[in-house]
Design a protein around this nucleic acid. Structure first.
Lengths: 216, 216
DNA sequence: TGCTGTGAAACCGTTCACAGCT
DNA sequence: AGCTGTGAACGGTTTCACAGCA
């Protein structure tokens, strides 16, 4: 099993979403002490089709054992490697306001694969301080230097709309590989860098829409 | 134009996402002083296909004028009505930590269609206070009473994983129609209520995956 | 036997292309 | 003439169904 699995074509986004889900499911199984699981069992954990799980995994190699299923720990390790989570990436958060600090202190952002290395802000009263869990707050002027020094790979924008675009450009120029933008503007595609815009209003509007729909 | 447009079948999720985008595009056009726009022009505003825009809209009625295009203001009003945004919905946020306060004060959550009416927390020092923009912080014990009194329609979970599920149930029982969950647990489908789980780790993992991919 | 890995079928969403209004 | 509204073609993803291996 476990063939080299050369991948050239880009992985469909839907697949990458499911991979995240799958990893969660595996974590759950692992802490539940389960060592082996079939695609049917995993599929049941989130209402999915078992063939889909097998197909998704088949894109990357043969991780299963016929007649048995998948070894949970092994598959999880493969998956983490696949998703680039086997080493810890440093994150830098622009904006030490409520949102920035919430993210900096979040267990999510300091879990398997990630570590918040720095917060940046323009407010002189915040600069030099630390977040509740101890993430240092640097002056945004030192952004480029700190990104390089701390080897920050992913930049997170938690600033008001106004400053977002120019900060995105500075982070990109400083060498981060990806940007996660929470500011209510769409950061355009920047050359050589991945950008993901997350607009929280979006989720609200969707709920509202579904509410309106269901009431009809 | 503008036929009744009976809709029975559920709208595909992709459509509802695009409707949000479309609304943004229309806001942009409106503030730019544009009164009429063709589907081609709108499509150009975000890299989409013009037919898709027409198809999406066609599901709900006939809003366009052949040979001319769409009247921006009119279409926007229709869209807002469609999405349940023509009246303001009250939001209640459980958890007055950094994330909860960030959301409460966010312009996004207090824009067209939404208004944060209350924050809830267990911390006695916070209770009785207000967020920076003036959203009152209530004791979580008063959750049910306040939800009813303030006619809160959407509950937002900005609490740690532990308390999330039980709060979700309390909010549901108190009568909210939808829940937006930011806690790092999956809130299961509750009867008669819409639940949207937003796991911020998800976005990070996806970026990480794409980074890992692109480096290959 | 029982489950994975996978070709083939079914399904769904997107794009094309044009008929039909204005 | 010009653009919307829409049936038909296309492409991609999901599901089915089974061959192949432990």
């Amino acid at each position: 099993m476990n063939k080299p699995a050369e991948r050239t074509e880009p992985v469909p986004e839907a697949t990458s979403h499911r991979l995240s889900l799958l990893l969660r499911a595996l974590r759950g199984l692992e802490t539940a002490g389960v060592h082996t699981a079939t695609s049917y069992e995993i599929a049941a954990r989130f209402g999915l089709n078992s063939a889909q799980i097998r197909k998704d995994l088949a894109q990357f190699g043969e991780f299963g054992v016929r007649g048995v299923g998948y070894r949970v720990g092994e598959l999880k390790a493969h998956l983490k490697a696949l998703m680039g989570l086997s080493k810890t990436r440093a994150l830098g958060i622009a904006g030490a306001g409520n949102l920035g600090q919430a993210l900096a202190d979040s267990r999510n952002f300091n879990a398997e694969g990630f570590r918040v290395a720095a917060l940046f802000d323009v407010d002189g009263r915040k600069v030099g301080g630390r977040s509740r869990t101890g993430v240092p707050i640097y002056d945004v002027q030192a952004l480029e230097d700190r990104v390089k020094e701390l080897r920050i790979e992913i930049g997170i924008l938690a600033v008001p709309a106004e400053g977002a675009i120019s900060l995105a450009q500075r982070l990109a120029a400083a060498g981060v590989g990806a940007l996660l933008n929470f500011a209510p503007v769409t950061v355009p595609a920047l050359p050589g860098i991945l950008v993901k815009n997350v607009d929280l209003t979006f989720f609200l509007e969707n709920l509202s829409f579904q509410l309106a729909e269901s009431k009809t």
